[in-house]
Design a protein around this nucleic acid. Structure first.
Length: 273
DNA sequence: AGGTCTACCTGAGGGC
DNA sequence: TGCCCTCAGGTAGACC
């Protein structure tokens, strides 16, 4: 599932293919999912950035193409059976592949995100200077929601999805069930640092490619972070830290993996006396 | 306010 | 072998 590291890797690989190119047209037959794409016709690609899980393609004449990969979206150099949209360029083409069709594209006036409310509600970029512990801690302690739900909301940090939420909680040794307001400052600090570390490491390895290979780069290259997963997709397998079998449960409606021993359900029982 | 459920999609994998 | 069922998850929205 494309989360921050996968989207960032996609951005880096697409950059040389798109920068300076002119878009001849975006071809598709699905105007509900791919909005106002006619506006991109004839525009030049001036930049490619990322915000959370959104790719932002800066176009000439003050336009912007906003792309969300959904669960299975990605770019390919050749047409696939699940190509949903084609970027026809002055030199070559790029194929938007998306078996489950959860991906979305909007062409808008630059910065006009009225049709994309989530994009305006995103919290800070966890790998940027904007990600600051005091704000993180203030938001965390105000909420009665479980940590897993908070991480998926995109408010504490933009771009975290199911895989990296589970991996960050494991690294911070915090239960996904623990409520924000039950977290102590030291624990919050661990989570803050774990998020940065796990995301940075995953970006450095090109993200995670799962066994269904739904996520890969345009040239077919897989990511390398899946081999570092400590808990995600490892239910029943031994915890890399203590050997206890990894548990799987549902939190916030999502499959959630954790080590019942390293991530106890209650905050660290403070030793009395 | 938080929790839970459903919908949107389709391929993969388990069970029989 | 083959069919049926369930699951997976990013996000929105309904409802308790």
């Amino acid at each position: 599932m494309p989360e921050l590291p996968e989207v960032e890797t996609t951005r880096r690989r697409l950059l040389p293919l798109l920068l300076g190119r002119r878009i001849l047209a975006l071809d598709h037959g699905d105007p509900k999912r791919y909005r106002h794409t006619e506006k991109a016709r004839g525009k030049r690609v001036e930049g490619l950035s990322r915000r959370g899980k959104f790719l932002l393609l800066e176009l000439s004449e003050g336009l912007e193409a906003v792309i969300h990969l959904g669960m299975t979206g990605g770019f390919r150099l050749e047409r696939t059976p699940h190509t949903r949209l084609v970027f026809r360029l002055d030199q070559g083409a790029l194929f938007f592949h998306d078996p489950r069709r959860f991906g979305r594209i909007w062409v808008v006036e630059r910065g006009d995100y009225r049709e994309i409310p989530l994009l305006t509600r995103l919290g800070p970029e966890p790998l940027s200077e904007d990600f600051r512990f005091p704000t993180f801690w203030e938001e965390l302690r105000r909420s009665a929601k479980p940590l897993k739900a908070l991480l998926l909301e995109q408010r504490l940090a933009a771009g975290v999805g199911n895989i990296y939420a589970d991996e960050a909680l494991f690294r911070a040794r915090l239960s996904p069930f623990l409520k924000g307001k039950e977290v102590e400052k030291e624990e919050a600090k661990r989570l803050f640092l774990a998020l940065k570390a796990v995301l940075a490491e995953a970006v450095a390895l090109g993200g995670s490619t799962l066994s269904d290979r739904s996520y890969q780069q345009p040239d077919g290259l897989p990511g390398g972070f899946q081999e570092r997963h400590a808990v995600y997709g490892r239910a029943g397998l031994p915890c890399p830290a203590c050997g206890t079998p990894i548990a799987k449960d549902v939190v916030a409606g999502r499959g959630t993996h954790f080590c019942p021993r390293c991530q106890p359900q209650r905050p660290r029982p403070r030793s009395k006396r």
